[in-house]
Design a protein around this nucleic acid. Structure first.
Lengths: 227, 227
DNA sequence: ATATTTTGCGTCATTTCCACGCAATAAAAG
DNA sequence: CTTTTATTGCGTGGAAATGACGCAAAATAT
């Protein structure tokens, strides 16, 4: 057997803030090929390292960001997707909380790291455009039947943040009254007694918190979620 | 870089017949490790071969089966999942039509190949039990919002076959009257003028056929399917 | 002929969905 | 302090989907 395929991981990391919307974390490539181009953070898997460990290590090295939620996205393996040699990339899908959203640290492999709005992406290295397309589809598809939206918000958040997140991702206006009825009826959101600090005019509402325990219990009981 | 990871593909292939239900295609391993154990068909990816090509080639070599539908399932990459050396496996998910269900040809890498009911699986080599678990979850999850059930049936089929397939996969009885109303209302099934040949007692019904063109058109128009 | 099996068509009560109205609360503007 | 504006919180009613079930028609088996 003279197989010569290198194994890498790449991570599509999503972040969210009310001001900048849904964003993706990219790094500027320091070396050839595609020097100077923006790319998804990632790198080669070490011999005794799991794929997930490789993702977290590369993200730490290249961006300093710690992710809150991680799942495998898709594996890209076309023979010629890298001009140097054959590289198979296991792409992952990550989410960070808004608070993490600003923290960035450029280092070893990347001349720079930055967030880009997911609707205004720059030209990308390799087949990374395709990878992002798959990731965005996954996020959009997943948000309606799994409560991953909460992973993008702070632990406590005003209800309007959740509403705006969904409106952005689904790319359509949402009727707040119906949306709230539906989400609250799932029984996985706790309403807190704290009020959000006001951000301009308008009446501040209570803060809400995702109840993971209840969610897992209901899931085990076979409950079916859909927003 | 002294990375030493081999890349393989594995294929979880599902077949269906009214008599034997939902089955999975397995091969008996001819060589160590796990000689004599049942395993998912698969093998190493060649240097200039796409992952999908590798799946089809291995399936052809080991079982002679040609698949009708193929999609990537998940990539398994734990460092110690193979006792010899580190092997990363990109698992695929395949479906064959009932007619293909019987055709089997043992050859090079496999001492034998056979179908096993998905509820009565033998002990398996490597981490293949886990792979099958993921595959079965995928099939169950997918069947309700994508018309992949048709890929398991013949081109023309009596409606009761579809009903039984869903009852088996969802593991619960189905009300035929409501089920038919729902499926027909999607508008992706053509009712033919041919009658099914009778299989014992009872009134034979018309044959039906999945209309892929209509399905794709409706999908493009943003229609949402769910059974 | 009669019983049995399977199909085909329909009914009806309940639940969910969705468009929308409007009062209450708090900050900003005058 | 009063008015304006923005946002929240609660509700209502019609339309549509869901799900339980009844029953006749068609074909085979006895």
């Amino acid at each position: 057997m003279t197989q010569n395929i290198q194994v890498a991981v790449d991570a599509v990391v999503f972040g969210y803030s009310k001001e900048e919307g849904v964003s993706i974390l990219l790094i500027k490539r320091k070396y050839d090929p595609y020097q100077g181009r923006w790319a998804i953070p990632g790198g080669f898997v070490l011999n005794n390292e799991s794929l997930e460990d490789a993702v977290e290590r590369e993200l730490q090295e290249e961006t300093g960001v710690r992710i809150n939620y991680l799942e495998q996205l898709y594996t890209f393996g076309k023979p010629d997707r890298d001009p140097r040699t054959r590289i198979l990339s296991v792409a992952y899908f990550g989410l960070v909380k808004s608070s993490q959203f600003e923290k960035l640290k450029a280092s070893t492999d990347a001349a720079d790291a930055a967030w880009f709005n997911f609707k205004e992406l720059p030209q990308l290295a390799f087949d990374h455009k395709e990878i992002l397309k798959v990731a965005i589809e996954r996020l959009r598809g997943k948000i309606i039947y799994q409560p991953i939206g909460f992973e993008l918000l702070e632990k406590k958040f005003p209800f309007s943040d959740l509403e705006q997140l969904y409106a952005t991702l689904l790319d359509r206006p949402i009727d707040r009254r119906n949306f709230k009825k539906k989400v609250m009826s799932l029984g996985i959101l706790d309403e807190l007694d704290e009020k959000a600090k006001s951000t301009g005019a308008g009446r501040p509402g209570n803060l809400f918190q995702f109840n993971k325990k209840t969610y897992n219990r209901l899931l085990k009981e076979g409950m079916h979620f859909e927003i």
